[in-house]
Design a protein around this nucleic acid. Structure first.
Lengths: 231, 231
DNA sequence: GGGGACACGTGATAC
DNA sequence: TGTATCACGTGTCCC
């Protein structure tokens, strides 16, 4: 407890400026600083998707994830232009869950405080990467969009579509979030993924002869790559 | 100071659980929480460019700016398909620096605490937007990538390339960062930009007759659009 | 009660 | 010297 009297009874008597006054301006400055930080935190809460009603620490974790998500894309674009999206010769469709999440260069201090992100790993939306490679055709984009929407509460995070020589490859990254009381069981997750896979397979099967012919007509390699963020 | 004895001398005697023990576990948990937050903060410090050696509040401000930067790009892509990237009829190349930076919806609290991000505005990487519009041809992507790399320490943040009807437009956004003791003079900045511009001009001039002929051969417009949905 | 999360005031410390 | 930041322990409120 702070002594109620204003006099400097005993003690080393640190300064001529009344100790009480100093303490007051001090705590006031500290309060200012705190609310500066919290203001920025509140701003971040509005910026980062689905970070409302989050713990302060969890919010920061989500911000880390979000920044990594975007930051990673940028450096990926560095390598020329994302060769991963270049379409191959064969038709294919794939869906995979990325659970090797951001384990690069974390360096959470030297000490033993590496357990901070373990708790909310469970509740976090899981990153799913889906791709399809087939002959290009008009309406392919729309079909891919439909495929994405076919799986419930999947948030498209990023999409790349490249078309070269009439062949198209689309790579989608989704956050499949199980916000509320959805089934987070392995079975529930699997059915969502298979739904997405089936939808993409439908996209693949949709190629028609006229489109094939059209693709034949244009031998010249044609790139169209697009890096987009959807929130 | 807390009384050193373990006994509950007088006072309301709050609980049968030794008060000292409770306080210890309490402060311990609080410390745990603190270092959880700080760990995420340290991670953010490594993720956000030029945010090392920054005040905790300033760091968060920078994070806000960074997230807004990428987030803004995302919502830009939302409008259907970023019509800005649709190629026009004439060949052109451009380089411009975006200095109207993120002055939208700041709302840094109502008070006078709006001065925290002013200091590091100078050291921050500047955003450069470069574009080229020409006839499509194989290898255009590679050439653009080369053009980007031709200017030192330029980090590609985002790239869009759209090809329609044989005409291609590529828009690149770069962070030209002057981290260490590089020349931040106006002359130094100008030479970097002109280097980039020259490289892009070389890309533009590279169109050859065979590519033009090839472009004639494929009349069918080829779109690459994007699913977009923003909350 | 017990645990988590937050704001607060305070001592230490750097420029 | 004042004026920043930071970590710490504590009180308090809410599941």
């Amino acid at each position: 407890m702070v002594v109620t009297g204003d006099g400097e009874g005993e003690r080393p008597a640190p300064a001529p400026a009344s100790r009480k006054e100093r303490g007051r301006s001090h705590s006031e400055a500290e309060r200012k600083r705190r609310q500066r930080i919290n203001a920025h935190l509140a701003t971040l809460r509005t910026l980062v998707p689905s970070a409302s009603r989050m713990d302060k620490a969890a919010l920061l974790g989500e911000v880390v994830r979000y920044v990594r998500e975007l930051h990673g894309k940028a450096s990926e674009a560095t390598e020329g232009v994302s060769i991963g999206v270049i379409p191959g010769e064969g038709d294919e469709v794939g869906v995979e869950e990325e659970d090797d999440r951001w384990r690069h260069g974390g360096h959470y201090g030297a000490g033993g405080l590496g357990t901070d992100a373990d708790a909310d790993d469970r509740l976090r939306p899981r990153r799913v990467r889906a791709w399809v490679c087939c002959a290009d055709r008009p309406g392919l984009m729309a079909d891919l969009g439909r495929a994405v929407r076919s799986v419930g509460n999947a948030r498209p995070v990023r999409a790349e579509i490249a078309t070269v020589g009439g062949r198209t490859r689309g790579v989608l990254e989704l956050d499949v979030c199980c916000d509320d009381d959805d089934d987070v069981t392995a079975a529930g997750r699997a059915v969502e993924l298979s739904t997405l896979r089936a939808a993409l397979h439908a996209v693949l099967l949709n190629r028609e002869e006229e489109h094939l012919a059209a693709a034949e007509g244009c031998k010249r390699p044609r790139y169209t790559t697009r890096i987009a963020k959807v929130q």
